[in-house]
Every structure is written in structure tokens, then in C-alpha cells.
Write a protein that binds this DNA or RNA. Structure first.
Lengths: 158, 158
DNA sequence: CAACCAATTTAGCCTTGGCTAACAATGCGG
DNA sequence: CCGCATTGTTAGCCAAGGCTAAATTGGTTG
């Protein structure tokens, strides 16, 4: 463990850099991101399925594959996983449905997504860019920040 | 292809949902996120190595493992990858260095990271939360949005 | 200078999330 | 009601990014 015993070396003369955060805190940042990665794809699928159900009354694997730009095989495999996780129910060759838990996740995810999207628009980001950024950002924004974004958007719109 | 021929079904009576984006655009959102995922870990490693070099004069595998909260074996494997990608140079059992390209990536990544972090703070997010969120968000913010964030922060600080 | 401890690397395993190709079921048009 | 296009599934491949355990190297210290 060579870390964090070494006092600051007098090496730099460049622009001022922030100090490195303490190891434990730094580590927690990365852990949080890794954890988010584990759930975000799941959430994206569930959210999309929820949207399809709302807007079209059904969610077919082919539609999901299209919208995700992914092969049907990938979707099929993922659906099995969602099934095991108790998020969707499906009979073979039939349209999908969300379980209660799945519906809850879809709703939450939807909510976060909307807050981020509206926030970006309120900030002045053009729609098509806002959509793309929101998709990536939504899984990495804490509840705390989310609340602040919400507040910002509300004030802007008021 | 059952998609996008079906006109709106009159199903919902709940809260107003935005319409689904056209398939092509929707697909692009997900593709962008997938692409970001491919590079973001790499960027995180390179950025961290750059930070360690700046702040401590050297970047050791053990420090990286500590700060990332990951095993040394994982770091070792990743370093080999970074090597193959021409981002770092390393002799076995020795400290690491960034190539020109690696330095450039570290700098860019650092820049994005700082903009997002400062933006979040300017928005009113407490520091420790801002750090965590910034880590996750930095790879999903477009240049366009980044510029807007920068501007916002500048105005706030002025 | 030998021996031990810390750091690094290697080997081998696992899960995720993609893919293609081949096969199976559905359901519609004639 | 038969045939065939569309849709869904399965099998088997691959790369990435984790892990543990074991082997190696390097440095320090008694």
C-alpha cells in the first residue's frame, strides 16, 4: 500500500489541479458507477416495455429489437433474464407484460428520465441532443441531484 | 415489422405521456449510450492514471486498484489493454506512463469531468454528491450540452 | 546476503450483453 | 386450409471486465 502516506510531491507547475479525493471516497465514486451499470440496461428494457405497452397496448420483441437497434436474439435472451428477475411475464410467442414490480420500475425509470430530459431542455439544450444525453445520464443522477433538477425546471417553466 | 404503422391506440386515461420518438431516432439514443460504455472505463483508467502522475509523480497499479476498489489482477489486465491501445507505456513491475495519445485523452476526460463537477456544484448540489454524479455523468454528456453547462457555471460564478 | 513482504503478473474462472445461423411457431392471404 | 413471411427461440460464439489463487519479482531489513 504505497498510497496516501506519500505527502504531496512538489512536481507540478502546470495549471492548478484539484487535490485527489481521499481513497475511500474516490473508490465509492467508481463503485457507484459500476453498480449503476449493472442495473441500467435492465431498467432501459423495462422502461421501454412500459412505454410500448402504454403507447401501443402491447410490447413485442421485434419492436424492442428495432428501437434498441439490437438483434431479436439479444432481446429474447434479455427477456428470459427479466423473467427470472420477476419483472415481466411472458408466454412463448406472445406479447410481454410487466409484473407489479416491473411496472413500478418502469414508472420510476420513466420519472427519472423525464426529469432529466425536461431539465436539459430548460437548460437550453436542443431537443434531439437532450434526448440522447438524457438516455445516458438518467442512470447516474442521484435522487438528491434529481430533486434539484426538478426544482430548476419548475422555476424556469414558471 | 409491426412497428410504426399502428396509429395511436386510444388506450390511456392516465397522465399525459410524451409520444414515442420515431424508431430511427430512438435507436440512435441507445446506440450512443452503448458506444459510450465501450470507452468510458478506458477513459476512467486513463484519467485516473493522469491524475496520479500529476499529483504524486507516479502511477502504481496498487494505487489504481485501491482508488477504483478493484483487484490488482483486474488492473493488471486492464493495463495490458491500455498498452495494446497505445495509451500507456509500462515496463513490467514498473510504474506507468501515458503516451502522447494517452495524455491527450486524460486531459480531455479531465476537462469534461471538471466541467460537469463544477456545473453540479453551481447548480447547488453538495460536493460529495456532485463528485459521485459527475463520475457517472461525464461520459454521457455531449459536447453541446457540455458547452451549455460551462456557460451556466461561468455566469453563476461571475 | 538471505529471507521475507509487498507488489505485480499470470492462469483460469464467471457473468453480461452482444452477434449469427438454424430452427420453430404464428397467423394471414390466397 | 395450406403455404409462406414474419416473429420468436435456441445454440453456440465472442469480448469485456470482474474475481481468486498461484507464481514471480523487487526491495528492505535483520
Amino acid at each position: 500500500m504505497s498510497d496516501d502516506s506519500t505527502p504531496q510531491r512538489p512536481f507540478r507547475d502546470g495549471p492548478s489541479h484539484d487535490a485527489l479525493p481521499p481513497v475511500a471516497q474516490h473508490a465509492r465514486q467508481y463503485e457507484t458507477v459500476r453498480n449503476a451499470h449493472e442495473t441500467e440496461l435492465i431498467e432501459d428494457y423495462v422502461e421501454l416495455i412500459g412505454d410500448l405497452l402504454d403507447h401501443r397496448g402491447e410490447a413485442r420483441a421485434a419492436d424492442i429489437a428495432n428501437r434498441m437497434a439490437v438483434s431479436q436474439a439479444t432481446v429474447s435472451k434479455m427477456i428470459r433474464r427479466l423473467n427470472e428477475l420477476g419483472l415481466v411475464t411472458s408466454q412463448p410467442y406472445r406479447s410481454l407484460f410487466l409484473t407489479d414490480e416491473g411496472r413500478k420500475m418502469a414508472q420510476t425509470s420513466r420519472g427519472r428520465h423525464d426529469i432529466v430530459l425536461h431539465f436539459l431542455r430548460a437548460l437550453g439544450v436542443p431537443d434531439s441532443t437532450a434526448r440522447i444525453d438524457a438516455e445516458g445520464m438518467e442512470h447516474h443522477v442521484s435522487d438528491e441531484t434529481l430533486a434539484i433538477m426538478q426544482r430548476f425546471t419548475d422555476e424556469k417553466d414558471a
